[in-house]
Design a binder for these strands. Structure first.
Lengths: 204, 204
DNA sequence: GTCCTATTTCCTGTATACAGGATTTAATTC
DNA sequence: GAATTAAATCCTGTATACAGGAAATAGGAC
């Protein structure tokens, strides 16, 4: 998600100019569709949102580049956030399967730890799902991930000690913890046998 | 999320005028903080984003109401979507624990099916995590959830048949499937013994 | 302290966002 | 068909978004 580590960011030119216009296309279709599904006239939406009919009409016809404030008001009139309004909904294949036997999803397998990815590689959402098997006394330690990253860990067998920042907790089989992963964090097997758990990582 | 069923929408006035300005406050702090954490000068960000230094400076000082195109470019320069840029981040407690023995998280327990919630109730992300135990020949059927909702199901033991819309697939122990839950969908135990699985539900 | 460079803010002019009224188009009823 | 009303688009003028250069400020070296 980061475009560079700050050392020479100017060389990582991120803008693709056409995406600007793609955004506008998304917006116009979205507003048109939402207004239709709510059965609002331009006038009703104008009154609800406090944005003029002209402006709404122009937006729907892709003739406007609204300010954030205007966009906010329109989103709000539909009970949506800006992100919900302007971010396109991509079409998904209905079901994507990851087989247990698929070696591509074996992320790590060594003496201490075995990690298997359970979510499809091309999954659109910023969510990842892993199965972890950690040997006694071994641990999985991470530096801080990106801001807003969280992990949800469920212990299926064994005993885990979770550290996030300076907070520590212990989990037994059946317990779950949701913790910040945008701080240094770790999962340690503090029991006698193997620690088996599932980990959901969510990125903001 | 809907503001009415279309019968008399004009009476549901949704706008709270001050939130417009709250948005601007969020934006200015956000851009300031992001630029700082990436160690960009105004000039570097200007070049990256294609937005003038003046404009960025004004945004950071809360003196601007940028258009969507400008907002998009700035978000893009930081590798974020517009929603990610303008939607505020609430502070999280570091670790939130759900104990296996907590009866509040037992969502359903009957002859056919046992569902336990593994994610904390007040979890900020639109992600939910469940443990499912389904008896032979029993199934869990849902109508379509909200648009964009997806489910990620991992089978730990047994055999499952997943239906999403008109797509059907079978999973064995160790397999996972990611599927649309914004269509009618179901999980059925098509084996002889109990089906044990974990379900990650993500809302858009 | 001075000098130099980097960074940010100010200033100004142009383009465009936007509202509100007028006009056009569409839909309905007779 | 005509008449009426509703809905959408066009037109125009004002305010403001925005870029680019100038000026001010900040930071570092000596």
């Amino acid at each position: 998600m980061s475009i560079g580590n700050g050392s020479n960011p100017a060389s990582d030119y991120a803008l693709e100019k056409t995406n600007d216009q793609d955004l506008n296309r998304v917006l116009c279709h979205r507003v048109t569709e939402l207004r239709k599904s709510h059965k609002f006239t331009l006038d009703q939406l104008a009154r609800l949102s406090g944005v003029s009919r002209s402006m709404i009409s122009q937006i729907e016809r892709g003739r406007a580049n609204p300010t954030l404030a205007i966009t906010f008001r329109i989103a709000n009139a539909f009970g949506l956030s800006i992100g919900e309004l302007v971010e396109s909904t991509a079409s998904n294949p209905n079901i994507e399967v990851v087989h247990g036997s698929d070696p591509n999803n074996l992320f790590r397998a060594d003496d201490e730890c075995r990690i298997r990815t359970l979510s499809p590689l091309h999954m659109e959402k910023n969510v990842e799902f892993y199965e972890l098997i950690i040997e006694p006394k071994a641990s999985l330690t991470s530096t801080a991930h990106f801001e807003g990253t969280q992990e949800l860990l469920t212990v299926t067998s064994g005993t885990a000690e979770i550290v996030s920042g300076e907070t520590v907790c212990r989990l037994s089989a059946g317990d779950s913890a949701n913790y910040r992963a945008d701080l240094p964090h770790s999962v340690r097997n503090c029991g006698q046998g193997k620690l088996r758990c599932y980990l959901v990582v969510t990125y903001r």
